[in-house]
């Protein structure tokens, strides 16, 4: 191994050691942290058009401390497709599936994440897309046209699952941000007298239903010293929930009902506007 390869490793090794010492020092005196939200049950009703939820809490802070808040939604397989020009038109040529990635992932913080802590400390505190340890598989039925997968994780899945490269993760991050499901929101947390923090979670109307975890992490001098998790549930309710369950649980009857409804309203329209 050449020297330039060893040096960064040595440096990160030292940083890790330092972080360990600091965190163990911090563990000796854990700070108290409480977190809550204005509503931990969100009902998607017929007039739902996204909603805002106040996330707030209290912490034992000092000047220069930071708060990071991670809202993550239920896991889902995310299919990512790449287009290429074939015979003059843009066609999906390659599909990869990210296994059980969070369908919703908003990160709130008091400052830019890289100002709060270094990459390793964020990784240890499980903050950010790279800390999710996502794996992806290439879909068999799309052409294997030059995909650049990362190293194998060595898992024994029948499909070859691999860890995403940082470039692939950045692409996923951008795609998910475009549809509003993932977000980085630096400087979105307001604090008061190093005691209170609050921020607003803007749930888009396409936020997936299910159980959400809201994790608050208290950083001091670049080290996570304390954390707290609370939860939230989003579900379809009222008429819209009823229709959704009807369509999925009794699909034959739903289809017949949709046809009967259409025939009846078509007939009604013809009678009403008979010339």
């Amino acid at each position: 191994m050449s020297l330039p390869v060893i040096m960064p490793r040595l440096a990160s090794g030292l940083a890790m050691l330092a972080a360990l010492m600091l965190s163990s020092a911090a563990q000796a005196a854990p700070t108290r942290l409480v977190a809550d939200l204005s509503d931990n049950r969100v009902d998607i009703t017929s007039t739902y058009h996204g909603t805002e939820i106040l996330l707030f809490g209290a912490y034992e802070g000092e000047e220069g401390d930071d708060i990071v808040l991670v809202v993550s939604g239920p896991g889902a397989d995310i299919k990512q497709r790449r287009k290429a020009k074939k015979a003059g038109i843009w066609v999906n040529v390659e599909t990869v599936t990210w296994q059980q990635a969070p369908s919703f992932y908003h990160i709130f913080s008091t400052r830019e994440l890289n100002e709060i802590a270094d990459g390793q400390a964020l990784q240890d505190a499980e903050i950010g897309a790279s800390a999710l340890q996502l794996t992806l598989t290439a879909d068999a039925n799309t052409g294997a046209g030059g995909h650049h997968a990362g190293q194998s994780t060595g898992s024994d899945d029948t499909q070859k699952a691999s860890a995403g490269t940082s470039e692939q993760l950045a692409n996923l991050d951008r795609n998910m941000a475009n549809i509003g499901l993932w977000a980085h929101l630096p400087s979105s947390i307001k604090t008061q007298q190093n005691m209170l923090f609050r921020t607003t979670l803007a749930l888009p109307s396409n936020a997936p239903t299910g159980d959400y975890a809201i994790r608050v992490v208290h950083f001091r001098d670049g080290v996570a010293i304390s954390q707290r998790t609370t939860d939230m549930n989003i579900k379809k309710a009222g008429l819209s929930g009823l229709i959704y369950r009807f369509a999925h649980d009794y699909s034959v009857f739903y289809g017949l009902f949709a046809i009967a409804f259409a025939v009846a309203s078509g007939w009604l329209a013809a009678v009403a506007f008979r010339r």
């Binding site: 017929s46 819209s240 034959v252 739903y254 289809g255 259409a262 309203s265 329209a269």
Partner: peptide
């Protein structure tokens, strides 16, 4: 189209009759 409605309801659950009803109201 009734056949498509029924088969899509069963296979893909993609028939939104709330949307269909509102579109229909405008269309009539």
């Amino acid at each position: 189209t009734a056949n498509v409605t029924l088969l899509q309801s069963i296979q893909t659950q993609t028939v939104d009759f709330v949307l269909a009803g509102l579109l229909l109201f405008g269309a009539v």
